[in-house]
Amino acid sequence: MSEHAVSSPEITFSPEHASGTKKIWKTFWILSIITIAELGIGLAIYNIHKGPDPSAALVLFFKGMVCILTLAKAYYIVSIFMHLGDEIRNMIMTIVVPLLLFVWFITAFLWDGNAWKNLRNTDGGSRTAPTEQVQQHAPAAVDNHEKK
């Protein structure tokens, strides 16, 4: 058994990413700032809702903003903390490309969810939907953040 010098097909590797902690702390501050920005937007949405005439478009815009900020956060965590940014490109692609499936995954699911809402509101098209009015100006303007 010892006569076969094992030439495992796998070579050892040399991690190159021990570059110093500066980058880590920088990322920490970036993440913190983004989180605070997100909180700011969250509170802004809260105040819009409290206001007399909540603008659906504005709320939607702010919600889009938080989504983008969240993706930015995700990028920093994966790229810096998880060192994916330091891996070679092929590795990055094998991780990122399958995640693109989420685009269609999310689109199709939410699309169908929205279709169910329409079916429910109109009883399969046999009734007219309750007017937007009712949904938008619910008493106390509490939980009316309609996504659509």
Binding site: G42, H49, G113, N114, R120
Partner: peptide
């Protein structure tokens, strides 16, 4: 998906 399929949702704030 479920949130899209109902008219209202609880306000997190």
């Amino acid at each position: 998906t479920i949130r899209f399929s109902v008219n209202n949702w609880a306000d997190p704030n």
